[in-house]
Amino acid sequence: MAIRYVHTNLIARDWRALSSFYVRLFDCRPVPPERDLSGDWLDAATGIDKSHLTGIHLRLPGHGDTGPTLEIFSYDACPDHPDANPDTPGFAHIAFLVDDVAALSQAVLDAGGSAVGELASRDVPGVGRLVFRYLRDPEGNIIELQSWN
């Protein structure tokens, strides 16, 4: 059986604003068309009566035209979500390899993101020096920025 990773879904309060954040700061690229989904088939798949969602897929950087996407959707009705922390069970964060962790950290903060922790580094024997930081996007989802020297 052939298996290929396709996408990760991120539910947003405002999919347009959040996707714009990832396009501007992380060089993600929209993959048309925008989605506007509803119907019995979606209700059956999600277990949510009268579900309706809108959004878009963003091609993640560094993987070419057939690489995985970040699927950012908004439901018409979206309950509040408790803040997640790096140790919260479940999917914890999305990570990007970047040239300058400090500079992109500041760009995330300037674009409405927030800090989780501070810039950190460590030597990994046999691999190199890791510089990384955890931040939150404008909707509170955790992002890891990392570079290796």
Rank of each mutant, 00 (worst) to 15 (best):
N9I: 13
V124F: 11
H52V: 12
A77R: 11
G90R: 10
V101D: 02
A17D: 10
I48G: 04
D49R: 14
R136E: 04
A95V: 02
Y22L: 09
P125W: 07
P82R: 13
C78S: 13
D40C: 01
V101F: 00
P61C: 05
V98Y: 00
Y5T: 12
E144L: 03
V6F: 14
I94T: 11
I56P: 00
D14T: 05
L42F: 13
L135Y: 02
W41T: 12
R35T: 14
V101W: 00
A12I: 06
L60S: 02
S51M: 06
A12N: 05
I48W: 09
A17R: 15
S74A: 14
F132P: 00
H7V: 06
L104G: 03
N85P: 00
R29H: 11
V6K: 15
S114M: 04
H7T: 08
K50P: 00
Y22A: 01
A77M: 07
A44V: 10
I94C: 09
Q106N: 12
G55S: 11
L42E: 07
L18K: 08
R29L: 15
A84V: 11
V127Q: 05
D43C: 01
P30S: 08
R13W: 04
D110V: 02
P33K: 10
R133L: 09
T54L: 10
C28D: 05
P32S: 10
F73M: 15
G55A: 09
A45W: 07
